[in-house]
Design a protein around this nucleic acid. Structure first.
Lengths: 203, 203
DNA sequence: TCGGTACTGGACATGATGTCTAGTACGCAG
DNA sequence: CTGCGTACTAGACATCATGTCCAGTACCGA
């Protein structure tokens, strides 16, 4: 699986990888996942195709890194983790803002011209975030996994709808809408939305 | 786009198409979307590859037919349309039952080994059903499209979760869970769950 | 029974993938 | 600054799936 032979912090390696990632994101945004080949990425990045394969096994392995970055970015946007968390699913704000800002890329990730791998990866990211979050706000009789699937799926498709719609709403409005819809579900467990901060689920 | 030259009701045509569809579904269930080629479908169906292309442009066009069937099946399961509709999103029961019954196929449609096209098609199917349904139960200040995305996405991922989980729940239980979670969202518009049947949204 | 149409299988061109190799360029340590 | 090693390069190669085309065969329907 990881076939990365150049294990170095060599400057050449860093430049090459950066170029490839950049090219990938650009091509993804403008042509969609199936709209470009490994060759195309290499051309755009000015990198030999053989070189590509010394770093990544395929397009998918290359894009995986970008998802790592995205995840880190989103989590970083939450401020100090474990700090002052007031509402469930607080990460949605950052995700929505980010998604609407980089609209072209996110449409390519989530929309019709995407690819199975990319989309699946994004789904996993969102639902994973939801699960981690909701672990702190359990609902009676509902497995966290199921709750996360529900809330994450809803968020995913709502964001998709916003990205595809002609006049995309403001991030705040969309976030508010989502929380307005998903709020009742969570408050069913007796969670006061602006009230006590229950926070102590197993680490 | 539709390149179907054999426009006939010829018995040979029907047999060929049926064989191809059957083979496709079987292969999809056991190998996943990317796990088989057009050639494989033809082999399993005992049909020449050239023949395949006289009927369908590619795998995707072939599978489209099956989705049509599925849609019809689900809608048929609702009884006379416009009849005695008591609750919003009534179609979920049929969908969930069907999905859990044909677990292998639906995991292939929705799961990790699926393909972008198939998955997208299924998403569109579910969200489309939700939209058609929810048109009859509007929620103040929320576009139907958005509401359908929310409810459909949640259903989609909840079903996926159930399909992937080890001990899959009973259809009734899953359906109940979904409606328990999504219910509050809809009742926000003042819909009594067991009460008055509001039914007359703008056509 | 016969005409037409669907099926057959095989050839062909195309394009992407992934592997490999010998040679070149460049970063980095000494 | 100098050379050692490692990353990069171009290109060849084998493989595989796709989609098109054609001449021949089989079979449906009238």
């Amino acid at each position: 699986m990881g076939v990365k032979q150049p294990s170095t912090g060599d400057r050449r390696v860093q430049r090459t990888r950066a170029a490839l990632r950049e090219a990938l994101v650009a091509l993804l945004a403008e042509r969609g996942w199936d709209g470009f080949s490994v060759q195309d990425v290499c051309d755009r990045a000015n990198v030999g195709r053989s070189t590509f394969y010394t770093h990544f096994a395929d397009k998918e392995e290359l894009v995986s890194g970008s998802f790592e970055d995205l995840r880190r970015t989103l989590l970083a946007g939450l401020g100090a983790p474990g700090g002052e968390r007031r509402r469930p699913l607080a990460f949605t704000r950052g995700l929505i803002e980010h998604g609407l800002s980089y609209r072209r890329v996110f449409r390519a990730i989530v929309g019709r011209r995407s690819g199975h791998f990319v989309q699946g990866r994004f789904r996993a990211l969102v639902i994973g975030l939801a699960r981690d979050d909701l672990t702190g706000w359990p609902v009676r009789g509902v497995p966290v996994e199921a709750l996360a699937a529900f809330a994450g799926g809803a968020l995913l498709e709502l964001l998709t709808w916003a990205l595809e719609s002609k006049g995309p709403p403001e991030p705040e409005a969309l976030d508010a809408l989502y929380h307005r819809l998903v709020g009742p579900v969570l408050s069913e467990a007796g969670i006061a939305l602006g009230g006590t901060s229950r926070r102590s689920a197993e680490t």
